[in-house]
C-alpha cells in the first residue's frame, strides 16, 4: 500500500525511506521498492508514526521546509499538528483513510495522479 502511495507522490523506486518505528521497519525491510535509511537526511520520504518522529521531523524540516525528504503521517493527528506533512494514511472506524493536502503538495510541487484526486483536500 505504501509503495503505491509513495509512487503517487512522485517518488521513484527505490524509494529511500526513513522510519524509526521498529514494527514499520520490519515490514518495509522486505519491500523490493523501498530502501530503509538510517538517517533523516538521506531519505526521500519520512514516515511519521510517533510523537518523537513528529518532533524530529519538525526540527529537521525547519532547515529545509520545501526540499526532501517529504513527510507522510500514519495518523490524522500528526497530519493536523504538523504543517509539513503532505498527507496521511490511517484507519478510522474500521476503514482505511488516505488523504493529501493540496497546499502542502503544491509546496513540494507534487501532483498526484488523477485517480488519487478524490483523496486530495483543501483543508482539514
Amino acid at each position: 500500500m505504501y509503495g503505491t502511495i509513495f509512487a503517487a507522490l512522485g517518488l521513484k523506486a527505490p524509494v529511500h525511506l526513513y522510519v524509526d518505528d521498529k514494527e514499520y521497519r520490519s515490514v518495509f525491510r522486505h519491500s523490493p521498492d523501498i530502501e530503509l535509511t538510517n538517517t533523516f537526511e538521506k531519505s526521500d520520504i519520512v514516515l511519521v508514526t510517533t510523537e518523537e518522529a513528529l518532533e524530529l521531523a519538525r526540527r529537521k524540516k525547519g532547515e529545509n521546509p520545501e526540499g526532501k525528504p517529504i513527510l507522510f503521517a500514519t495518523d490524522y493527528h500528526f497530519l493536523k499538528s504538523c504543517e509539513k506533512t503532505v498527507g496521511a494514511f490511517y484507519w478510522r472506524k474500521g476503514r482505511s483513510q488516505l488523504l493529501f493536502l493540496k497546499k502542502r503538495l503544491d509546496r513540494h510541487h507534487i501532483a498526484v495522479p488523477e485517480k488519487y484526486g478524490k483523496f486530495v483536500i483543501d483543508e482539514l
Partner: peptide
C-alpha cells in the same frame, strides 16, 4: 478512538 467534531471521513 472517538474523533473530534467535523473530522474528515472517507467512507470507502
Amino acid at each position: 478512538d472517538a474523533v473530534e467534531y467535523k473530522t474528515l471521513f472517507f467512507p470507502q
